[in-house]
Every structure is written in C-alpha cells, then in structure tokens.
Design a protein around this nucleic acid. Structure first.
Lengths: 220, 220
DNA sequence: GCGTTGCTTCGGGCGGGACCGAAGCGTCAG
DNA sequence: CTGACGCTTCGGTCCCGCCCGAAGCAACGC
C-alpha cells in the first residue's frame, strides 16, 4: 500500500495523474509539460507508474500515449482528492507569480489560463469552432476568420486539428491541437504576448490587450 | 493531493493507518510498536497526520488515543489497498496470516473478506437490501428480518444507511454504512465472531458458523 | 516532595530519490 | 541518406525527510 501511495505522493507524478484523470491518453512530452519537468524526468516517472500498474501505454509511431490503467485507479485518485479537499482548510499563499500563471501561460505549445479559455470561449460563441468530445472542428466561417487573422492551417499532420484541454486553474476548456498551437504562434509573432522569465508564464502586451479586444471581443 | 498521498506513502505511516483501519483508537506508544519505530518517530508521524486531518486525537489522562478522523479516510485507504492488491503481479508469499484476513476481517466498523461479501450476497439475493450506485436501501422485508435478528436501525444519523464498499481481496461488494456496522456489532454480541491477536483478523466461532448458515443461508 | 511513565521537541546523521545535462536509439519526413 | 523529433538511459548533484539519541514536559502513584 505504501508503494502505491508513495507514487501518488510526488508532486510531479500527482500532476501527471490529475492530468490523465479524465481518461484521456496523452504523450510523454505533453505530460512532462503539464508536470513542469523535463522530458527525461517525466519519462522516469511514467516508467515507474506503468510498472506499478497505474498507467498503460499505447505505442503509436514515435509517440507513446499514456492513460490510467483501470477505473480502479481513477476511483483511488478520486477518493484521495476527496480527503484532500475535505480535510485541510489550508490556505495557499497566492503569490504574485501564481497570479501571473493563472492569467496567461503556455500549456505545451498553446495558451492556457484565463487567456486560453477566453479565446476558446470567443471562438465557440461565434461558431468559428465547434467543440465535441473527440476533438472539435473548425467551421468554414472559422477558417475565414483564422485566415484573416494570419493563421494558415495545414491538414497534413496526424495531430488532431483542434482538441480541447481542461484548464487546471479555470476548470474550463481551452484550445489545444494544431489550431491552439497556430493561434499561439501567431500571437507571439504579432507581439501580443511575451514570455516572462518563468518560461511558462506569459505577459500580455498593451498591443495584445487591444488586439484581443478588437479581434476576439474580450478584454483581459 | 500529493501531500495526502505522500503521508500514506511512507511505510511507517502506512502501517499505522492500517492498524487504525478498523476504527479503533490506539495510543501513540502502541502505534509506535506496531510500526516498528521508536516513540519519538511515531510521535512525529502522528502529529503530521493529525494536522493533515487524517487522524483525530482524544486526550485521556497521560494517554493520547488516535483514530481515523472520518470514514472518508477509511474509504481512501480501502481504495488504495484495492489498487495495490490488483495492480502488481508481484508475488506475495500468501501466509496463513493473510489467509485468515481473507476469510474475515473488520473494515473500519463493518465486516469484510469472504464473510463480508457472503452477508451482502445473502441479503441482496433475498431482496432484503437493494444496492444502487449511491448507497442502497433496506426493503420493508429487510427491516423485519434485521429486527428479528436483533438489529434496530436508527435513521437519526446523517451517515448513509447502507453503502457498498469494494472488497480488496474478494473484488466484490460488502456492506458498510449504518447497516453494515449494526450487523457487525450484533454478531460480536451474539458471540459469532471474535477478534484474533491481530486485531483486524476475525475468528468465526462454531456458534457463528451455525448462525450464519441458519439465518443467512451460507456456510463458511 | 520523588520517581515512573507517556509523549513531545530538538539536533544531527544519513539514505533515497527527484532532477537535469548529455548521449543513444527508434521513427518519420524530405 | 540526412536531419528533426520523441523518448529513453546513464551519471552525477543535491535536497528532502526519515530516523534515532538526548533532553524537556506533563500526568500519575507513592
């Protein structure tokens, strides 16, 4: 019992398990970003958890997709979360650094945080994108919009065009996949966002605030 | 979440929690002996777990009695054990001690093991109890049966009347909740079961075997 | 008062394991 | 073939936290 609990007891591994909690299968690199560690560190964690039977792995080309091995594991995580949520009325310090991460950050290669869900909301509301359970799709109006915005979509890749990804601070969906990545790249090129010293945190420039308001209809 | 799991993830603490798993309250020194560490080490562990809300402490003279803080904690431990028992095909020696645990043991305040699932099966088969996903219910026939058996159900408590709980050795459900606890208490009073030296393992007396056969219709 | 017992806090030793840089292997695109 | 990419293994560093010895408190019995 102690071994299983110890596996969940490491912050990096706990983050990985939480990320997989909804049943998705993600690649090792994606999970390393989620856990905020380097790929080689994540690789070690994933190997341990797979060996212990917490995860299963699906090989597909040069990618390895990891997911929770059984519903029993998900149930265990849920019961641990239940205790964690009920037991400690512990305050977290809520640092300025965390606030910045909550506002805007990168998640793998796309945007997350309030910025990420705002973009997703805006595109969904205008029916430029339709989200479904197994990845969404871009409408023709959406393709026009994205083209005007300066994003050209290549369908050459095997990667899902447009996937949604649960945001861990906002508890709502933001865009990932090719579309999410392309929008992020374009925003960097336009000078709307800049990386801070902490490479995951993002700074939204004044030009960016104006641009998001005009093109996407939200102020941040 | 990682913090809670890390608390369970230490061998000494896991042993302490297992020892408390049946709902008893034990002193710090007893627990230090159980975990095979010195009292001062155990004291540190107990303080941490109490602070995290896993344990509660009852002061009585110069003794301090520790017990699991809530049934939620017991449920978490059970689910971790379930994963630990199912996941690793790591050989376990299968000692006589484990066999006894598998036959009949206490789980917090109710029965588990073969005895626990047999009782649950018997009551379900005769439609004395209907199990559903969110706790079950006792039928009127079931209330009559339990009354004749000497169990009086109070509905005063907020605790679920009758919950089912996955058994980590049998991989099937046994009864917990108010009903499970009441049946266990009654069986102790009737002298059908006795605690062994290992406080979690139960011994079924000859009178108990006869009683279970007659009242519940299974031999064990 | 005194000693005993149950439990805690303090200090330092020590080992396990998390982490990263560098390098190696397999897969895929051009 | 060559380069890029995803992932892993290897080596080494460093820190967290488990553990115990010693000492300090508090509650009993006498």
């Amino acid at each position: 019992m102690a071994e299983i609990a110890a596996l969940v007891g490491d912050p990096a591994r706990a983050t990985i398990l939480s990320t997989l909690f909804d049943g998705r299968a993600l690649t090792a690199t994606e999970l390393s970003y989620a856990a905020n560690v380097t790929p080689q560190t994540a690789s070690g964690h994933l190997a341990k958890m797979t060996q212990a039977g917490l995860l299963t792995v699906l090989k597909q080309g040069r990618h390895r997709y990891f997911r929770l091995a059984t519903p029993l594991v998900a149930q265990m995580l849920e019961s641990i979360m239940a205790v964690a949520a009920s037991a400690p009325p512990r305050y977290r310090p809520r640092t300025a650094q965390e606030d910045r991460l909550r506002l805007a950050r990168t998640c793998y290669d796309h945007f997350a945080g309030i910025l990420g869900v705002s973009i997703a909301d805006a595109l969904c509301e205008r029916k430029h994108i339709i989200l479904s359970d197994d990845g969404g799709e871009v409408t023709t109006a959406g393709q026009t919009f994205l083209n005007d915005f300066g994003v050209s979509l290549t369908t050459q890749t095997r990667r899902p065009i447009c996937r949604h990804c649960l945001d861990w601070t906002e508890r709502r969906f933001h865009l990932s996949g090719v579309v999410g990545a392309a929008i992020a790249t374009r925003c960097f090129d336009l000078g709307w966002v800049r990386r801070e010293r902490n490479p995951r945190a993002l700074q939204i420039t004044p030009k960016g605030r104006e641009g998001f308001r005009r093109n996407f209809g939200f102020s941040i």
